[in-house]
């Protein structure tokens, strides 16, 4: 059983070093399928995440989301009550 070379004698006659020489076209087809599938899955994942985000945004309300001052999480109820009318950041106890 061998998958490729079994000797490195006569290096001038040796070309490809990888196993399963002759399967290159199949490997390329597999690679292209993986690449396209990755884009499809990434797009679907991102769309789902965006849809959930939009839903959460409307559940919580824009004032509550934005009152946190633009950080990357939605403010908790107690934090919200700490805001002034001008939207000053909540002071942590």
């Amino acid at each position: 059983m061998k998958t490729g070379l079994d000797s490195f004698n006569n290096p001038a006659d040796i070309g490809p070093l990888y196993p399963f020489v002759g399967t290159e076209v199949i490997l390329v087809v597999i690679g292209v399928i993986v690449w396209l599938a990755w884009h499809y899955l990434q797009t679907r994942q991102e769309s789902t995440e965006d849809d959930e985000g939009v839903q959460k945004f409307h559940e919580v309300g824009k004032d509550r989301v934005l009152f946190h001052g633009g950080t990357a999480r939605i403010a908790r109820e107690d934090e919200l009550h700490g805001h002034t009318e001008q939207g000053a950041p909540h002071q942590m106890d």
């Binding site: 965006d50 939009v54 824009k62 989301v65 633009g70 950080t71 990357a72 999480r73 939605i74």
Partner: peptide, 9 residues
């Protein structure tokens, strides 16, 4: 909504 809240929100 995502843009306002932040892409990482």
């Amino acid at each position: 909504e995502i843009e306002l809240a932040g892409l990482d929100a």
